[in-house]
């Protein structure tokens, strides 16, 4: 899906993620990945650093005026994010659309997911920072500052595929994985909402076909049923590469009343959505599941060394 040739359009003229993407491209010695910016309020050029010199990226008023690209990074607000995706689904070259906004209506998000699937377009999000293909392509702010990119060895591929519900924890996992293994090949944040357009299994099945990925790491959470589908895919033989898994939110059970954690999707509605159940279910299916988050890194290291 993402290579050193991947081109992206940013919907929304956001300087910081744009600069971070270009700094990453420069570090990876590839061409600038962002080919166009859409800003309904103005057309023109956006100045950005490319190494030490300045370059400009064209700004258009609408998606229809932009040049071809494979990825649309949609920074539109929760109220207008889905119409932007629907428009994007009409452009043949786009293969992936990222929805950054938090607070998209659940019904709209579900309709968007169905339409995208019909069109064969991979939507990541809503409520996501995106993801990163090590040494090839970075979505927006994923991976943080350039110092962190270097510290977590994200400028060149390792052996691990990573899928996380959370963005902050995606970056934390990049660091843990860099300490315990030779690093990640690709990491994706599916987003913390109740209904992410693509879930754990969608990405794990994609990673399963990816020759560079030798093992998979998943960080799930209390709430929703997405993690249980990983267990089903392992049992059905669709996922054969080792999966190291942990679902956070085990403490939800010890509180005397319902607590809505930070992510909109992080609330257990039925028993099988609890973190404890998910960890147990994945362990039974043959995934590597530690006793607590503290041991997650160690288990990732052990599985890596046994490859």
């Amino acid at each position: 899906m993402f290579t050193v040739k991947t081109r992206a359009i940013l919907y929304g003229e956001h300087h910081d993620p744009l600069q971070r993407m270009l700094d990453y491209d420069y570090l990876c010695r590839r061409e600038p990945s962002v080919v166009a910016i859409v800003n309904p309020a103005r057309a023109g050029w956006h100045k950005v650093f490319w190494g030490k010199k300045e370059i400009v990226i064209p700004v258009y008023r609408s998606l229809g005026e932009t040049s071809e690209a494979e990825v649309l990074i949609n920074f539109a607000s929760a109220r207008s994010a889905v119409p932007v995706v629907m428009e994007g689904l009409g452009y043949k070259s786009l293969r992936c659309i990222v929805v950054v906004a938090e607070g998209v209506r659940e019904r709209e998000a579900r309709i968007m997911a169905v339409k995208a699937k019909e069109k064969g377009v991979m939507v990541i999000g809503p409520a996501t920072v995106g993801g990163l293909r090590a040494g090839a392509f970075r979505i927006g702010n994923t991976g943080g500052s350039i110092e962190n990119i270097v510290a977590a060895k994200l400028y060149r591929p390792g052996s691990v595929g990573l899928v996380s519900r959370s963005g902050g924890m995606l970056n934390e996992m990049f660091n843990i994985i860099a300490q315990e293994t030779d690093g990640v090949v690709e990491g994706v944040q599916i987003g913390g909402d109740r209904f992410p357009a693509t879930g754990f299994v969608d990405h794990l099945l994609r990673f399963e076909q990816d020759g560079a990925i030798k093992m998979q790491v998943c960080l799930g959470e209390v709430g929703g049923g997405d993690e249980v589908k990983i267990a089903e895919a392992i049992e059905a033989g669709q996922i054969k590469k080792p999966v190291v898994f942990w679902a956070i939110g085990t403490s939800a059970e010890v509180f005397s009343h319902e607590v809505q954690f930070g992510h909109a999707g992080a609330l257990k509605l039925t028993e099988d959505q609890s973190a404890r159940y998910k960890n147990k279910r994945l362990r039974e299916a043959g995934a590597f599941v530690p006793e607590s988050f503290n041991d997650f890194g160690k288990m990732i290291g052990a599985v890596y060394r046994s490859l």
Partner: peptide, 8 residues
């Protein structure tokens, strides 16, 4: 900080 980090 963090919707999930806090849960950890």
């Amino acid at each position: 900080a963090g919707g999930a980090g806090s849960v950890v």
